[in-house]
Deep mutational scan, measured.
Amino acid sequence: QVNQQQLQQLMDMGFTREHAMEALLNTSTMEQATEYLLTHP
């Protein structure tokens, strides 16, 4: 289960819902999730 607010923040940054969910499931903080998305295009 992912934090919906964090998911929305990542989608607002331009990431897809699927990619943002993957990042949130594989990390524990927003900072890590953002870094994950930038390093796993």
Rank of each mutant, 00 (worst) to 15 (best):
Q1A: 04
Q1W: 05
Q1F: 04
Q1T: 08
Q1C: 05
Q1S: 06
Q1L: 01
Q1G: 12
Q1K: 15
V2C: 00
V2R: 10
V2M: 09
V2K: 13
V2S: 06
V2N: 08
V2G: 08
V2P: 03
V2W: 02
V2Q: 15
V2E: 06
N3G: 01
N3M: 06
N3Q: 09
N3L: 04
N3R: 01
N3Y: 04
N3T: 06
N3P: 03
N3F: 03
N3I: 03
N3D: 11
N3W: 01
N3H: 05
Q4W: 00
Q4K: 14
Q4D: 13
Q4E: 09
Q4S: 09
Q4C: 05
Q4L: 10
Q4P: 03
Q4R: 05
Q4I: 08
Q5I: 12
Q5W: 01
Q5Y: 06
Q5L: 04
Q5G: 12
Q5N: 12
Q5P: 06
Q5F: 05
Q6V: 07
Q6L: 09
Q6W: 02
Q6K: 05
Q6T: 07
Q6P: 03
Q6I: 09
Q6G: 06
Q6M: 06
Q6S: 08
L7G: 02
L7Q: 11
L7E: 05
L7R: 06
L7M: 13
L7C: 03
L7Y: 02
L7T: 11
L7S: 03
L7V: 11
L7P: 01
L7D: 04
L7W: 00
L7A: 07
Q8R: 11
Q8M: 07
Q8K: 13
Q8S: 12
Q8E: 15
Q8L: 06
Q8N: 14
Q8A: 11
Q8F: 12
Q8C: 13
Q8T: 14
Q9F: 03
Q9M: 04
Q9P: 04
Q9K: 11
Q9I: 03
Q9T: 05
L10C: 00
L10S: 01
L10A: 05
L10I: 10
L10W: 00
L10M: 08
L10E: 03
L10V: 08
L10Q: 02
L10D: 01
L10Y: 04
L10R: 01
L10F: 11
L10H: 02
L10T: 02
M11K: 12
M11E: 14
M11N: 04
M11C: 03
M11R: 04
M11H: 02
M11P: 00
M11F: 05
D12F: 04
D12Q: 14
D12N: 15
D12G: 13
D12S: 09
D12E: 14
D12K: 15
D12A: 11
M13V: 02
M13C: 06
M13E: 04
M13G: 13
M13H: 06
M13L: 09
M13R: 15
M13K: 15
M13P: 00
M13S: 09
G14V: 00
G14N: 15
G14T: 01
G14E: 10
F15T: 13
F15I: 15
F15D: 02
F15R: 07
F15N: 14
F15V: 12
F15P: 01
F15A: 15
F15H: 15
F15L: 04
F15W: 10
T16E: 13
T16I: 10
T16Q: 10
T16V: 10
T16H: 09
T16A: 13
T16L: 08
T16G: 12
T16C: 13
T16P: 08
R17H: 06
R17S: 12
R17E: 13
R17K: 12
R17Q: 05
R17C: 09
R17I: 02
R17M: 04
R17Y: 02
R17D: 05
E18W: 01
E18G: 11
E18D: 07
E18A: 05
E18M: 06
E18N: 04
E18S: 05
E18Y: 02
H19L: 12
H19G: 14
H19F: 09
H19T: 14
H19Y: 12
H19P: 10
H19E: 15
H19M: 13
H19W: 12
H19C: 12
H19N: 07
A20R: 00
A20E: 03
A20M: 00
A20Q: 00
A20S: 07
A20T: 12
A20C: 08
M21T: 15
M21D: 13
M21V: 12
M21Y: 07
M21H: 13
M21G: 10
M21P: 01
M21W: 08
M21Q: 15
M21S: 14
E22Y: 06
E22Q: 02
E22R: 04
E22S: 11
E22A: 10
E22M: 06
E22G: 10
E22K: 07
A23H: 03
A23S: 07
A23I: 00
A23R: 01
A23D: 01
A23Y: 01
A23C: 01
L24Y: 09
L24W: 07
L24D: 03
L24R: 03
L24I: 10
L24C: 14
L24M: 08
L24N: 02
L24T: 06
L24G: 02
L24K: 07
L25M: 14
L25E: 15
L25I: 11
L25R: 14
L25C: 10
L25Y: 09
L25V: 12
L25K: 14
L25S: 15
N26K: 12
N26H: 12
N26E: 08
N26S: 13
N26Y: 04
N26T: 14
N26V: 09
N26G: 12
T27M: 05
T27Y: 05
T27L: 01
T27K: 06
T27E: 04
T27P: 01
S28Y: 05
S28T: 13
S28P: 12
S28I: 03
S28R: 08
S28N: 12
S28E: 15
S28G: 12
S28M: 04
S28Q: 11
T29Q: 06
T29C: 09
T29P: 01
T29W: 00
T29F: 00
T29E: 08
T29M: 04
T29D: 11
T29S: 13
M30F: 14
M30S: 08
M30Q: 12
M30T: 10
M30L: 10
M30W: 08
M30C: 11
E31R: 08
E31Y: 01
E31K: 14
E31W: 01
E31I: 04
E31A: 06
E31P: 07
E31F: 02
E31T: 06
E31V: 05
E31C: 04
Q32M: 06
Q32Y: 03
Q32S: 10
Q32P: 02
Q32H: 08
Q32R: 07
Q32A: 12
Q32G: 11
Q32V: 03
A33H: 01
A33F: 00
A33K: 02
A33N: 01
A33I: 00
A33T: 05
A33Y: 00
A33S: 04
A33R: 01
T34D: 06
T34E: 15
T34P: 03
T34W: 05
T34Y: 06
T34C: 04
T34S: 10
T34K: 15
T34F: 08
T34L: 04
T34I: 05
T34N: 13
E35G: 09
E35D: 08
E35W: 14
E35H: 09
E35S: 13
E35C: 04
E35A: 14
E35L: 07
E35F: 05
Y36D: 05
Y36N: 08
Y36C: 10
Y36E: 09
Y36S: 10
Y36V: 08
Y36R: 13
Y36M: 11
Y36F: 13
L37E: 08
L37P: 10
L37V: 07
L37N: 07
L37Q: 07
L37W: 11
L37R: 08
L37H: 11
L37M: 08
L37A: 14
L37T: 07
L37K: 11
L38C: 10
L38M: 15
L38E: 15
L38P: 10
L38I: 08
L38Y: 03
L38R: 14
L38A: 15
T39R: 13
T39E: 10
T39S: 12
T39I: 04
T39K: 15
T39N: 09
T39M: 10
T39C: 09
T39F: 02
H40R: 14
H40L: 14
H40M: 14
H40I: 02
H40G: 11
H40D: 13
H40T: 10
H40N: 12
H40W: 10
H40V: 09
P41R: 14
P41H: 10
P41L: 03
P41S: 11
P41I: 15
P41A: 06
P41Q: 15
P41V: 11
P41G: 15
P41M: 05
